[in-house]
Structures are given as structure tokens and as C-alpha cells.
Amino acid sequence: SARMSRRKEFLRPLFEQFWQSLSACAALPKSLLGKAIKYALGQKEAIDKLLEYGAIDISNNTCEQAVKSLVIDRKNFLFSTSVAGAEANAIWLTLIESAKANGLDPQKYLTKILTVVPQLGPFPTESELEPYLPWN
């Protein structure tokens, strides 16, 4: 893929230079710099694999954006009047974010499950609920 080719052409040389610089850096192992270098070198194998596989983003920006609303809502849960209320908010938010992550309109998805799932009876089985999971 184009992403993989660009990673090999541009990023691989930069990371090789970075690893060499870290290896040559003289820092006391227990110092903050020494700990940072040890941590970075410990990530080398994973980053090298990432450079070989073009389908995965090299940053976590996409994930950060996806959980941003969770972080904001978590602050709002502090003002729930009960633990049960906060749990209910978290469940609804999870349903909404799961629908978004699977390319569904959250309002349509929630309308669908609120219409269909109650008709399954008081204790639906996992196999009865499975078709209504957002990724299905």
C-alpha cells in the first residue's frame, strides 16, 4: 500500500537514526533520562512491526478522538444523583459510541433496539440479542 511504502521510505530511516541515537546516549540507568531511554528501546520491536504493516495508524489520534466524548461525559457522571444513574449514563453512552464506531446513526440504532428488544421478552438469550449488536 502507499502508506506502507511511505513508511519504509521516510519513517524507517528516521526510526533507525532514533534507535542508534538512543543506544549511543550515555545516561545513568536509574535517572529519568535513563528510564525514558530504556522505555523507548523497549518499544522498538512493536514500532518496527508497525512500520512493516501499513493498515495500522502510527499514532493514536483516531482512538483519542473516539474516546474524547467518553472523557467529557465521565466528568458529567460525577453529578449523577446515584451510582445507578451514573451506570445508566455509561451504558447509554457506550451504546451511542458503539453505534457510531460501526457506522450507524445512533438515534436510528437506539430507536430500533428500544422497539425490538422489549418484544423479545423479559430475559432474552444472548443468541436472541446478538443480531441487534451494532456490528451485526
Rank of each mutant, 00 (worst) to 15 (best):
V83L: 14
S82E: 08
F79D: 02
L104T: 00
S82W: 12
T94S: 15
A101G: 06
S82K: 09
A88V: 09
N89E: 10
L93W: 04
N102L: 03
G85K: 02
N102A: 08
L104E: 02
N102S: 10
N89M: 13
L110A: 09
L120K: 10
N89W: 05
E97A: 09
P106D: 06
A99K: 04
A86V: 02
V117I: 15
L95T: 04
P106Q: 12
T111G: 03
T115R: 04
K108V: 08
I91M: 11
T94I: 04
L120W: 12
T111A: 15
I96K: 10
V83T: 13
L110Q: 06
V117K: 05
S82H: 11
Q107V: 15
F79C: 10
K112C: 09
I113A: 08
T94Q: 00
T115F: 01
L120P: 03
L114P: 00
A86H: 04
G85R: 05
S98N: 14
L110P: 01
V83A: 10
I113H: 07
L120Q: 09
A88L: 15
A84G: 03
I91W: 11
K100V: 09
Q119I: 03
Q107K: 13
Y109A: 05
K100T: 06
T81A: 13
A99T: 02
K112V: 01
L93A: 03
L93C: 06
A99H: 02
G85Y: 06
E87I: 12
A99G: 05
T115Y: 00
T94K: 03
T94M: 11
E97Y: 01
T111E: 12
A99P: 01
A90V: 07
L120G: 06
A84I: 06
G103L: 12
K108Y: 02
A88T: 13
T94N: 04
Q107C: 13
W92D: 11
L114H: 06
S80I: 03
P118V: 06
F79E: 09
A99N: 02
A90W: 03
V117W: 07
A88K: 15
